[in-house]
Design a protein around this nucleic acid. Structure first.
Lengths: 148, 148
DNA sequence: CCTAATAGTTAGGGAGCCTAATAGTCAAGT
DNA sequence: ACTTGACTATTAGGCTCCCTAACTATTAGG
């Protein structure tokens, strides 16, 4: 692929991404949980996780993750506990309430988005379906730099 | 398309978008301009624009747009002036310096992204290219349309 | 042991967004 | 012409989310 074509695609994708951000915002509008909180909760949905792992997976720094976790803890959605093998580590776990609220939030967002997807043509939906793995590879290619 | 399939697609796209947001963040890392600023500047690139138009096109409220514009004005990247036909209106224009800085910022980001796109397979790039119009329609379909 | 590395928290600060309240201007109807 | 209501933008105040720097506690290597 020629450089020019790559640059043009990059420009168009950036523009598209900019719009998608507003889409996300509107999805969150009257939400119980913010995007950042959903993101953090999703991280511990499959079992207790370290603060540093949550930070890395969320693409934020450790202190920012701590901040989020403290907020979620205050809302009784997660608990912080020790790791049996390493006393420095803090393991964050989802509470039953957290699991419930998270499921509700994910569900609500997915339903809103699904309703919009339904208004698209079948061809558009297919194009999106086909592109998602590629988009994920693209994101991953950039690495997850915000951590050192 | 069945509801289940739509919900599943919605979930996968939301996840993908979450990663894409980190991608954008990393693109902005050591930038001269933030994403929000680039976004605002792009809005006036094709000629003077009203504060309210900038806000609407950026998917933010008018006071937030004012705030951005004031910052950009302080950096000598835009100027604010009156509208000849309506004294309530403030027209925001790009300065020569603003045009230059904007071009540089867009260029830098596009180059970074293009370099990553180059690492993907041709099939992946095609899938992304094909999906962009669909993704734009999806974004626009939702609540706070970028264009209007 | 002592030291260097690692995990997390605390402290302080900035960007970016919001709502509510305000000032100024326009347009319409009486 | 004048008042009233709609519209444009700004100001004020507040919140979330992210950052870096500095600190504490713990672990592991020499």
């Amino acid at each position: 692929m020629k450089d020019d074509a790559l640059l043009e695609l990059a420009g168009r994708y950036r523009e598209s991404l900019r719009h998608a951000v507003y889409l996300i915002r509107s999805l969150d509008a009257e939400g119980e949980l913010s995007t950042a909180q959903v993101s953090t909760l999703n991280m511990v949905a499959e079992g207790p996780a370290r603060v540093s792992d949550i930070a890395r997976n969320s693409g934020i720094r450790v202190p920012s993750a701590t901040e989020q976790i403290i907020r979620l803890e205050a809302a009784r959605l997660v608990t912080r506990g020790p790791d049996a093998h390493d006393a420095r580590v803090v393991l964050v776990s989802l509470t039953p309430k957290g699991r419930e609220v998270l499921a509700g939030a994910n569900n609500r967002r997915n339903k809103m988005l699904a309703a919009q997807l339904a208004t698209l043509s079948a061809a558009d939906r297919e194009a999106i379906t086909a592109a998602i793995p590629a988009l994920n590879r693209l994101s991953i290619a950039l690495g997850r730099p915000p951590y050192r």
